[in-house]
Nucleic acid binder design. Structure first.
Lengths: 400, 400
DNA sequence: CAAGTAAGTAAATAGCTTGAACTTACACGC
DNA sequence: GCGTGTAAGTTCAAGCTATTTACTTACTTG
């Protein structure tokens, strides 16, 4: 269960037709307002092919026609946009501290959302509750009249790359859970794509896929919360999300930053998470599990030991970012997760370290764009919805 | 200049035809001995399409027919193989200590090779010498009667992902070199693909692309020599080699393993290369630049300080491997480079650390295959040749 | 030796993109 | 206000590719 679409080795005429439809849709998605003529130029197709392709996408509710462009001497072209009123994707995140749900339009706009706190419990109970909330969201006023493309679920742990199994979620206490199998029976009628993925990977995918205009070649999302994870997306036309052999790609919280350092819950020594993570900050400052970490720390940011702890964690985070820079060198880095809300005491040392050291090797002045997401509440859920959309556009669906 | 082929967003009938030819060729390449019927099943094409496709590939010298398969009740199928006698690719590596060249058949067999030592000099002189050697290789008895698909060059530094520029080769003292532009004028007649890439990436690509039978989903090659670099390849049908925004993907020698540690030549502190690399071992043991590192160390392996130095370097190497495991989690790790020749004193601690700690997080017993290449003299050059082949098969060539 | 089975080939058919001609729609100059 | 120029978008016959169906080939089994 993933977003690595069958690289369709070969195909027939129907396959070619679908490929061209996908290409047209992707072009308009990435560059809203394109005319048929623009598409023909960019996709290397003839006007005729684009014309019929666009017509069928209009009929099926994927695209809508907009205003006329300004003429540049001849007949003005008609702008094309995503039809943002016909389809909807549902996305959800099962986090350590609660459930987050969104209903998304094709362009990534959040039509409706829901967030509730939840103490970690069994997969079955969680699935039941999530199903209930999904049903509510699906019947919300702005959602219920749309065709639903599917449901994506983001989970806090590594996913098997070959089958939809959550291998481990240390902070939920789950292991080898086929979460979709618990969820689907609650939706006997809802057709469409069902998928699940790691939360950092879903978030990375969403941040990449819903981008319009200048799209980066690759993007890494770093999720800093109870644990630290990352996801990398790459490849413009057919975005690829690496999972790795065991789904461990992006488990950067368990890269070693301090050989011989403190013991991590995984059993290794000196993991990044022993230096920067929700749990290590709790441990350093003696904050109990049942207290909200961010809420209890925000009033205490002036305390000296809090400042010191966060500065050290921030330096480790900066090192982690630099190591990603020298391992995957993404075109854009995005930093999210609940720890971001701790603000400057944590982030300033991290960003300062990264900015000061990223160009040492090449000696250039080009800075890798690094974006900090202040409120990442719904980022992973929205990313899971993006994965649903991508699986429909690039996958074997006959909706296109 | 790279191996990220235009993801041909869309296409016409001719494009589809070419796609199917490529798919057939790739299938036979990966699984020699396949029959037309097998191909039809695996590529989801009809017998008729496969028949005409195979015929055209036979005519063009890509495939050859082999023996009849054993019948399973009906007419036996005829085995298909790569025609390993018609084409040739040239690959070269410009290393810190010399030039390595190979001529490769389609299956990756080295038909002829050449290795010579060379003290670092200017790009122009190097290109002139390499051109001379390439000419010799091209006119070697087993090579000259074949059609040459092109030339690939592997270089010891990061390559710009958008244009064929070697941005930096610290150990050669080069910066921003358009090496192909120095090389091509020496070959007024030789048509075909010309490309250059980082040596670890070329090596990774070759190890992945020439594999037959069970092909891993992804592969990381770690090149341990004067510096430390890596390359990752992913995606079975259309192998993708990530370079990153600035070509820094795989510069794992400059990931920080020891915050606040020794200064690296890049200006940062605690880079992996300060702990494990040709130059850091030289520095630790006082071996001069003009001595061959491996040759001078092999007789001294019993010395206590040598053992200690190599053990510490080995532990750092093990950490590096573990960090790759938790960042990219490749299906297979391959370790090459000149330092491998130092053998057990360096490798044992590295492999032991990696094996002991790779499964802590998931708690499984599945071991990631880790292959050590004893003699990696021609690995990168052969990989560059593989990239030439891939660019012909997947690129816009009309040879297929 | 006949029947059965599966691989591979040949010819007619269906479906997609193309190319060229055509229509539409605006801008510009007089 | 009108004619000309330019470019967007549409229409339809033509060309090309994969498929479908029927057929031939070639070996195994009873």
């Amino acid at each position: 269960m993933s977003t690595s679409f069958q690289q369709h080795k070969a195909g027939d005429l129907h396959f070619l037709k679908r490929l061209n439809r996908s290409a047209i849709l992707e072009l308009v998605r990435r560059t809203p307002g394109l005319t048929r003529a623009d598409i023909a130029t960019q996709a290397q197709l003839t006007k005729a092919t684009v014309g019929t392709g666009v017509q069928s996408l209009l009929n099926q509710g994927w695209l809508s026609e907009g205003e006329l462009q300004k003429s540049s001497g001849g007949r003005p072209g008609r702008a094309l946009h995503l039809n943002d009123r016909h389809y909807v994707m549902l996305g959800a995140e099962v986090g350590v501290h609660g459930l987050r749900l969104v209903a998304c339009s094709l362009s990534g706009e959040v039509l409706a959302s829901h967030h509730e706190h939840l103490v970690p419990t069994t997969p079955e109970v969680t699935a039941g509750l999530l199903a209930e909330r999904l049903h509510s969201l699906h019947s919300a006023p702005s959602v219920s009249d749309r065709h639903c493309l599917g449901v994506g679920v983001a989970l806090p742990g590594p996913i098997d790359p070959r089958k939809p199994v959550l291998r481990l979620a240390p902070n939920l206490g789950w292991r080898d859970i086929r979460f979709l199998e618990l969820l689907r029976p609650h939706f006997p009628k809802l057709e469409g794509t069902w998928l699940m993925d790691n939360e950092a990977k879903s978030a990375a995918f969403g941040e990449f896929y819903f981008r319009t205009g200048q799209v980066p070649d690759s993007l890494v999302y770093v999720s800093a919360g109870t644990g630290i994870g990352s996801g990398m997306v790459e490849g413009n036309h057919l975005p690829l999300l690496s999972r790795g052999l065991q789904g461990l790609a992006g488990e950067i919280g368990h890269t070693i930053l301090q050989p011989g350092g403190l013991y991590c819950h995984c059993g290794n020594r000196g993991c990044a998470e022993t230096l920067v993570s929700g749990w290590s900050i709790r441990a350093a400052l003696g904050i109990a599990e049942d207290e909200e970490l961010v809420e209890s720390l925000l009033p205490r940011l002036q305390e000296e030991n809090v400042q010191l702890t966060l500065r050290r964690a921030g330096e480790a985070l900066g090192t982690l970012l630099l190591n990603l820079h020298h391992t995957q060198n993404p075109s854009e880095l995005v930093l999210g997760g609940s720890l971001v809300q701790l603000g400057a005491p944590l982030l300033d040392p991290a960003l300062a370290y990264f900015k000061a050291n990223q160009n040492r090797l090449l000696g250039t002045t080009q800075q890798v764009p690094l974006r900090v997401i202040e409120d990442s509440t719904f980022i992973a859920a929205r990313g899971a919805a993006a994965q649903v959309l991508a699986s429909v556009i690039h996958g074997p669906s006959d909706l296109i």
